[in-house]
Design a protein around this nucleic acid. Sequence first.
DNA 1: TGTTATGCTTTACATACTGTCAAGAACAGC
DNA 2: GCTGTTCTTGACAGTATGTAAAGCATAACA
Lengths: 195, 195
Amino acid sequence: MSREGLDTASQILEAASALISAKGGADVTMAEIAKAAKLSRQAVYLHFADRAALLVSLARYVDEKRGIGEEVRKMREASTGLEALRMVVSIQVRMNPGVWAVARAMDAVRRTDEAAERSWQDRLTHRLEGCREIVMRLKKEGSLRAGLDVPAAADLLWTITSLRTWEDLVLDRGWSTQQYEKRVHQLLLSTLTNS
Amino acid sequence: MSREGLDTASQILEAASALISAKGGADVTMAEIAKAAKLSRQAVYLHFADRAALLVSLARYVDEKRGIGEEVRKMREASTGLEALRMVVSIQVRMNPGVWAVARAMDAVRRTDEAAERSWQDRLTHRLEGCREIVMRLKKEGSLRAGLDVPAAADLLWTITSLRTWEDLVLDRGWSTQQYEKRVHQLLLSTLTNS
DNA sequence: TGTTATGCTTTACATACTGTCAAGAACAGC
DNA sequence: GCTGTTCTTGACAGTATGTAAAGCATAACA
């Protein structure tokens, strides 16, 4: 609780975030995290009930650090649905690199851990809600492609702009940031809109 | 090596496949697999060097059992690129339910295991090659959307028809098989073709 | 019929990680 | 100086992977 710097829990999350990003995977042990945070392994358990709880907090921490909330707020205030659509892709491009490794770690444990699964579903439905809003704006503005109902369009927007798709195209297929942004935007336009 | 039935390795893979499908995840231990195959845990290690080797073999086994090779062959012999495009989606619908759980298990271990990662990349590039063939047929037949180059189109086809997208839409978002088939086909048409 | 090779079992062990527990040190505020 | 909080140290139980060694059962072989 020193006046300068972060509290201990945040120090742990910071260290964990750095470690997971560096190793690029979920295979980070509690001992490694503790060491990186310059604490004993047991001290970590004084702040987080278990590994899953730490990861859940970590996901939230990484989001906040990246200022995702602010970005999403800006997107909501876009002048048109079409503009919001463009911004969604832009946000993915800027946020995903820093979020990816931690998200992978979450995804890996969520099958076996109840808390992680709930946290995952929270984030999932939250993003889905954002997609639904955009699609409804498109519809309201007459931009939504004919014969496409709102729920289906929202689901499509959601999966096309997912971290997984980004991972496929950028990390596996080696698309540059510019290529991803341009092509996925075009994909969304031809899929969801009548333009 | 009994005349009737499978050999021991196949018995193990069969048991592992059933277990992973039943539990729907990668959290299956070697002891559980052995028990399901009615063998001692050590006997499993007589047939597979380690857990990763077992999973790699398992992926191949599940593919063969489902007859994926035959399906892909049929798709290659489709009369037109547009027809092949329709068949890709159809294959996903029929194969993914039985392949999904095993693929999840593979995906989970591939970050930490070299053999699993190589096997994963093999399958990945193989499917990607199939996507490239289809896109080239589209181009040859003049169906490819204007301004879309072949590599980019192949990557898009590949990620849109991936197991992950299927998982997102069918398992997470609850799309029915018919909905997935129809909508994803439509998505591919409006994204990749000029129709 | 005896011998041998194969496939499997049993038991034990080394290693690594998670999570728990208890005793004590360091250090703050009062 | 006392007390409460935070952290450390060390130990422990439980579970998983993977290795090793000795023995058993059986089918093929001579």
